[in-house]
Computed example of a mutant assay.
Amino acid sequence: MAKVDLQTVYIVAKDTGRLDAFYTQVLGMPVQFRDGNKWTQFREQRSAFALSCAEEAAPGAVGAVPVFQVAGDAADELHQKITSAGGELLARRDMGSHGVVATYKDPEENIFQIFSKAPAR
Rank of each mutant, 00 (worst) to 15 (best):
N37Q: 03
E56V: 06
G28T: 09
M29T: 14
A48E: 12
E44C: 15
M29N: 09
A54P: 11
G28V: 07
Q41A: 11
R43N: 10
R46P: 03
Q32D: 13
Q45L: 10
D35S: 07
R34A: 02
G28R: 05
N37D: 12
F42I: 09
M29E: 10
R34Y: 01
A50R: 05
M29C: 13
V26L: 14
C53N: 14
S52D: 12
Q41K: 04
F33W: 07
W39K: 00
P59H: 05
V31W: 06
R46H: 10
K38Y: 07
A48S: 14
Q45Y: 07
K38I: 04
F42E: 06
P30F: 01
A58N: 08
Q45F: 14
Q41I: 08
P59M: 08
F49Y: 12
E44R: 11
E44L: 15
E55F: 06
Q45C: 01
M29L: 15
R43S: 08
F42N: 02
L27V: 03
R46D: 05
Q41N: 08
R43H: 11
R46N: 13
F42Q: 01
F49E: 13
F42P: 06
N37A: 15
D35M: 08
A58V: 05
V31N: 03
F33M: 08
Q45R: 15
F49K: 14
W39M: 10
G36C: 03
V26W: 13
F42M: 05
Q32E: 10
